[in-house]
């Protein structure tokens, strides 16, 4: 019975594939272009911004406290985004925050992706008890609140950028593991894997040449969807004081600093908040569009 589908005997080959018949206006092109432009701008700012507008975490300038956006500071320069409660230029902080938030996001994804893909591939490829064990581990991980983990690690190791990355990676590898595993399960029974096996290939060759390439697209899609979440989670942790230390002010830190001045100086929290929201939304948009294009099956992740 299981074989009736593969044995559709004289079912002729599907219409001869003509590459040209591929759709040119692929789904989501507009969204992809827009989101990529926004994200590209952020990346530029993260790379070059702090270099253009210097930021010094310990400098204070009491005369310049709580200046609204567009004011002139004492030394006559323009504070486009205003200043905060210690007289620091908000623009410089937002630029610095972009660098930290994006760096944390990328580093987290690399680590989470590495752990997740490894676990997922091993579980999917070897199956049986190993699969069972690893996937139960993933279930446990999902039920464990990441806030608790963050408090744990912050208490144990103190707040630092590296620790934030570790916390977030531990909370995020499961999605990668699941996607990689399901992709392995689909791929490992494909004929071309058997064909390569009949050539005499060992597991490592099969994983490297057949399985991992098949995982690449969905993992990238997931990474794009996740990076927004990660950046947001980093901001939340920082907001709660469990994330990056105030010496490396991510947006979450700045937002938290501004929360006592919401009445007098709305901009301190609001401007980084808007920056954060715009970036997260752009990543979400890009992720969704990429998913629609490459892998509609991942819809409900």
């Amino acid at each position: 019975m299981t074989d009736t589908l593969t044995d559709l005997g004289r079912r002729p080959a599907a219409p001869v594939p003509e590459p040209a018949v591929r759709s040119r206006s692929k789904p989501g092109s507009g969204r992809i272009r827009f989101a990529s432009a926004v994200i590209g701008l952020y990346v530029l700012v993260a790379v070059f911004g702090p270099w253009l507008v210097g930021y010094d975490p310990v400098a204070t300038s009491t005369g310049d406290r709580l200046l609204p956006p567009g004011s002139r500071t004492e030394d006559g320069s323009l504070a486009i985004f205003g200043t905060d409660q210690v007289g620091q230029d908000l623009l410089a902080q937002v630029f610095q925050g972009a660098r930290i938030s994006i760096a944390v996001g990328v580093a987290t994804l690399l680590l989470a992706g590495l752990i997740g893909v490894t676990v997922g591939v091993v579980a999917g490829w070897y199956g049986r008890w190993l699969d069972g064990a690893l996937m139960r581990l993933a279930d446990v991980q999902l039920t464990f609140p990441s806030i608790l983990l963050a408090i744990f690690i912050a208490a144990l190791l103190g707040p630092s950028v590296v620790n934030v990355v570790i916390v977030l990676a531990i909370s995020n590898w499961v999605t990668f593991a699941r996607v990689a595993r399901s992709q392995v399960l689909v791929t490992k029974n494909r004929d071309f894997v058997d064909a390569t096996r009949t050539l005499g290939a060992r597991s490592w060759h099969l994983v490297r040449h057949c399985v991992l390439p098949a995982c690449a697209a969905p993992v990238l899609v997931v990474a794009t969807v996740e990076i927004g979440h990660v950046i947001l989670a980093e901001a939340s942790l920082s907001f709660l004081g469990l994330g990056t230390p105030s010496s490396s002010p991510s947006w979450g830190v700045t937002i938290a600093n501004g929360r006592n001045y919401l009445g007098d100086a709305w901009w301190i929290s609001t401007i980084p908040g808007i920056c954060l929201a715009l970036l997260v939304v752009s990543f979400g948009l890009l992720g969704d569009a990429l998913r629609d294009r490459f892998d509609p099956k991942l819809k409900n992740l």
């Binding site: 593969t6 080959a13 494909r190 071309f192 009949t198 057949c210």
Partner: peptide, 12 residues
Amino acid sequence: QMIFQDPYSSLN
């Protein structure tokens, strides 16, 4: 060696 049925799924 083996030649498979489905020319679509048997090639990487």
